[in-house]
């Protein structure tokens, strides 16, 4: 249907709509009033409840320890200069390329390389203490896939980027929700409860989520 025709039909319908009382202006920005807490402490507590593990060791040490723990042989990553506090990417592991070909040719072959990726390393530009959530944005040197296809996701987060809640973050000028084609809020590892409401981790995304605080 033509756009103008579609919108005209909706316009006629909304004029006839019988709706309960509502504000005539957009309700706008709103931030819930919550008692003060230690944001870092609250974040560690809530992320833990969401089955993520939070680390406070220096980034390079924490990453090295996790590479060893999972016996990882390959990884994918954001560019090192996109991750606060990370001096070097892990050595002795194969890095899977994330630069995806454009167009119909070669994409499936490229994607096939992701099949058994073990480790993904990314930054996180913000976090919500109240829900144990990290915010991961796509951009140059920041592929979406690194937080999605590996079995283990390591995200590096600056402590001073922890906000109280999603609404607190959205009200901050740094939020810029529509910058980058993808912003994802990640709360714990991938999971499902589709079979008998039994929680199972690692469905399509990572089975393990590690957050390194710097």
């Amino acid at each position: 249907m033509e756009r103008s025709e579609f919108l005209a039909r909706v316009g006629t319908a909304q004029a006839a709509a019988i709706l309960p009382d509502h504000p005539s202006e957009d309700p706008g920005q709103w931030v819930p009033d919550l008692p003060d807490v230690d944001l870092v402490g609250r974040f560690i507590e809530m992320a833990g409840k969401m089955a993520a593990e939070v680390h406070t060791a220096p980034v390079d040490d924490a990453v090295g320890e996790l590479v060893e723990r999972y016996g990882a042989g390959n990884y994918m990553s954001w560019d090192a200069d996109r991750i606060d506090g990370l001096d070097r990417l892990p050595e002795g592991l194969r890095r899977i390329t994330t630069e995806t070909p454009r167009g119909a040719e070669g994409r499936a072959e490229h994607n096939a390389g992701y099949m058994d990726c073990q480790l993904g390393i990314t930054g996180a530009e913000a976090a919500f203490a109240e829900t144990g959530t990290i915010v991961v944005r796509s951009g140059p040197g920041q592929p979406r896939m690194a937080s999605l296809v590996p079995l283990v996701h390591i995200a590096v987060l600056r402590k001073d980027r922890i906000f109280r809640s999603a609404s607190h973050w959205a009200a901050d000028p740094s939020a810029r929700m529509s910058e980058g084609s993808n912003v994802v809020f990640i709360t714990g590892p991938s999971k499902t409860a589709d079979i008998e409401s039994i929680v199972t981790l690692g469905v399509h995304g990572p089975k393990h989520l590690h957050i390194v605080l710097v």
Binding site: T100, E130, G139, P140, P143, G180, T187
Partner: peptide, 26 residues
């Protein structure tokens, strides 16, 4: 919906893959 504080992946998408991004839909 599920009694979660937030769903595991709340995915916000604005447009397709940008010219300087490494992945995402064309």
């Amino acid at each position: 919906g599920t009694g979660q504080a937030l769903t595991v992946y709340t995915n916000l998408m604005t447009g397709p893959r940008a010219f300087d991004e490494q992945d995402g839909p064309d």
